[in-house]
């Protein structure tokens, strides 16, 4: 996968975010085995200990699982992934509203603009 690690924030936080995104976008699909720590670390050009720390955190959140024999895999539970997707999408929505407000739009105007941008089909579906 493509990594972009900036130096000005703790590296492990950025690894957590980017791994999370890879699971949400399906780059690593549910149940898929992920590469060993050292391989991932070399790919991202970061320290294996830092990568290990990021993976452990994702395990704590239930997004990754460690199996005695099969190594580390993405969770097979679609509910967990869906819940996290909802969280991330909500963060994006809040960020959009905040940015629109800084430009002088009211929340209602921002919502109307989002509808307009989504096009005519978007009205039929309401739930994410």
């Amino acid at each position: 996968m493509d990594w972009e690690i900036l130096p000005d924030r703790p590296v492990y936080l950025q690894l957590v975010e980017q791994l999370e995104l890879a699971v949400l976008t399906g780059e690593y699909s549910p149940g898929q085995r992920i590469p060993p720590v050292r391989e991932l670390a070399a790919e991202a050009a970061v320290n294996p200990n830092t990568m290990q720390r990021a993976l452990a955190q994702l395990e704590d959140r239930g997004l990754l699982e460690t199996h005695r024999t099969a190594g580390r895999t993405v969770t097979g539970d679609p509910g967990r992934i869906a819940a996290l997707r909802g969280q991330r999408a909500a963060e994006c929505a809040r960020a959009y509203l905040a940015a629109a407000q800084r430009l002088g739009l009211s929340p209602a105007q921002a919502v109307a603009l989002a509808r307009q941008a989504a096009g005519p089909d978007a009205h039929h579906e309401t739930e994410v």
Binding site: R9, V11, T50
Partner: peptide, 15 residues
């Protein structure tokens, strides 16, 4: 720790 310095200073080691 390198990550502690980043967190504390809000910038990378190089900066």
């Amino acid at each position: 720790l390198a990550d502690d310095l980043r967190q504390r200073e809000g910038k990378g080691l190089d900066a």
